[in-house]
Design a protein around this nucleic acid. Sequence first.
RNA 1: GCCGCGGUAGCUCAGUGGUAGAGCGCAUCCUUGGUAAGGCUGAGGUCCAGGGUUCGAAUCCCUGCCGUGGCACCA
Length: 869
Amino acid sequence: MTGNPTPVKGPVMARYNPKETEPRWRKAWTDADAFRAVIDHDKPKYYVLEMFPYPSGRLHMGHVRNYALGDVIARFKRARGFSVLHPMGWDAFGLPAENAAMERGVDPKAWTYDNIARMRDELKQLGLSIDWSREFATCDVDYYGKQQAWFLDLFRAGLVYRKESVVNWDPVDQTVLANEQVVDGRGWRSGAVVEKRKLNQWAMRITDYADQLTDDLATLERWPEKVRVMQENWIGRSKGLKFRFHFAGETPAAAPDGLEVYTTRPDTLYGASFVGIAADHPLAEAVAARDPKAAAYIEECRKGAATQAEIDTAEKTGYDTGLRVKHPFDPSWELPVWIANFILMDYGTGAIFACPAHDQRDLDFARKYGQPVKPVVLPPGADAATFEIGDEAYVGPGVIYNSGFLDGLDIESAKAAAIERIEGQGDGDGATVFRLRDWGVSRQRAWGCPIPVVHCPTDGVVPVPKDQLPVAHPADIEFGKSGNALERHPTWKHTTCPVCGGPATRETDTLDTFVDSSWYFARFANPHAAEPIDKAAADYWLPVDQYIGGIEHAVLHLLYARFVTKALADQGMLSVREPFAGLFTQGMVTHETYRRQSGEWVEPGEVEVVAEGATRRAKLIVSGEPVVIGDSEKMSKSKKNTVAPEEIFDVYGVDAARLFVLSDSPPERDAQWSSAGVQGAWRFVNRVWDEFDSQPAGPPPAATPDEALRRATHKLVKQVTEAIDTFRFNSGIARLYEFLNFLKANPAAGASDAVLAARHEALSAFARLIAPFTPHLAEECWGRIGGAGMVVEAAWPAFDPSLTEDAVKILPVQVNGKRRGEISAPAGAEQAEVEAILKADPEIAQRLEGLTIRKIIVVKDRIVNIVAA
RNA sequence: GCCGCGGUAGCUCAGUGGUAGAGCGCAUCCUUGGUAAGGCUGAGGUCCAGGGUUCGAAUCCCUGCCGUGGCACCA
């Protein structure tokens, strides 16, 4: 190095001031219309979407993380030459608006749009690279009117229907819930114990797509395995046999064709000991009509267990109906028919045959009621003469025995043989059964998308003609009471029948808000189109290349969106059959919790944490009262462990907040927010700026750049590029931290021309590499070293693969697996060359004195191991 | 019960056959005209435990322990 050997302090630098730089760059991006998505067939396209927010009115750290993650991808892909679509909208219908209306007497519409306005400002402050010209809210009349249009298309296609059904009724929210929205017997939002009610309901035939929804999971290679498994379990496809038992003796009028059951184990039919039916099976009801004891038993079952815990521990009970059926393979063999509390009416046929030896539930029941237990599957190695079932059913592999024509077969062959026999007898067929139920979409709420049909006393249910869409809310809905305000409105529901012109009433149910969110990604392709979906635009942009959101939507939203995509594709409205090619589920933002001795929760802002070596203690700032530090948990108001994003932006700037939330942990894991962490990010922002500010202004000297710095730069570009490509943002940021330390070790002050030139190249790359994470800082730095235009318009830095490796490698030398020294070798040196260097090394020679070399293992560019004895 | 994920420095996490790393925190010292700041240097690790494979294991395999997520009377 040349220059002044004494330490030179840099010029007095102004501290980096995000309050000044950040708004300035956001304005520059807006003025340049930098993020407008354009259909450009000369470029590869990339559609980045984060799950759109509910407009609660306040941005929280979870939002910051979600949108920062998406923004990294969007900015990265844009710099890599993709035509990027990165839109934003609002999932704006739903109960919170109605609750606010009830509590505060405000208009849900005004409340919602006010919240949107506030949250839009906060989101824009985040500096996201979003095409805001595409923004819409699901409560916009234009959006839900288009939704009504395709809803009617699905109605005509038979995919939407109305049925009287037993539904989950949430007594607090006063509405119906889908099965997916009932968690442990309680409403997913209200937490109220869900009741069963019989109502006329609108439903969508998602079960028609159950096979496709299962099969196509295999094509979603860029989805987390976990989510695919969850969906597969939820749909719950099982293959088996549906068949009828014929009655022995009297055939009840309620089951004239016999009793149909479903089983996945037809191979164990010879182990049957009784037949069971659900308490609400029609046959059970018929029995109850003439048998008061049966009626009492059924009543008992209905009261039954409400919560999952109760169901788990509930004892199996049953009631013998006195009815008898014939075994399908042996008409002389009669089986009793029991009503049993563990059989579910809404799965399969609501009736089973029980094989206690090979099903634990059947075994528990059989032991209690003295039913026979006959094993028909012999485990490998077991002796047929002595094998017995104790308290545990045998469900493993084996050979069929005690089973007539099935004897000697393995389980799979026996299943096939049994099904073939039953089909031959005309008693039943092989069948596929799903756990998935049709999607009930009716909601008895006003603040949702009205279902566009009319009820006519003459013509029945009549769709509203397309030229009369949208069916909009009346302007003067009176909220403030519980129940459906549309139903209560004095005039809105009264209309005329589109068919006969006579008086008729409008449907007052609205659609589940999950319908709103099941196609918004397609509307973003062209949110101003006259048709619900602009097919040409959708063909260009869809599928979403990278979708990002919380794991909590693994079955609800993500399953509905997949179904609607397939249904709309079948109507010719879309070409893709899967909406999201890539899915990323990010973790939550958590924070330590603090409590006073009294147990009262305390906000982080009221607490001072003092670190003393390995121990940390906390106290109240005002009084010095000791505070107990609790686990890090999801930020929530009830535990007072939230941190308001706007306060962080105000103190440290948006870039520091983004950087910290991205750097702390891998994106799929929870991120622990801490004030120390965000301060660390803030220091990094300043150190970056200092480094750029210390570089002499003007073009770099025309010297050959310093080799080591150059190699480090190219290595960095490679590492950060790969880290972003593989969603390891925290790793990429760690490399940037390291590189900054390396740069500081090669300061501009007193540097040679070679170093100054290499530093310029390094800083030019660095400004572009930090842009996805800290976009405002990147622009400021880019400008400082004379970069052309803005970073948002600049190409991602390239790296020269030959420069990402060191020219000379330091190879550790092991003797018998223990490190004993090191040698220098040219990169790529092969065995012979390395051995030559080894022999010339006196230190190694000394180590090997008295030993016989058995083998020398050279791992190119990595390590040498000498095996000696 | 079934299916996952995780266990590496005080904390949060990289590293997934080849020299144990980063950030934060901590300690020492320097600076005090960048100042509710900046810098230098350093300490700190049975890579959860045991067994196996290998010249070599944090990494691969087996067993166990601990934590955590999802599903679950689905025939």
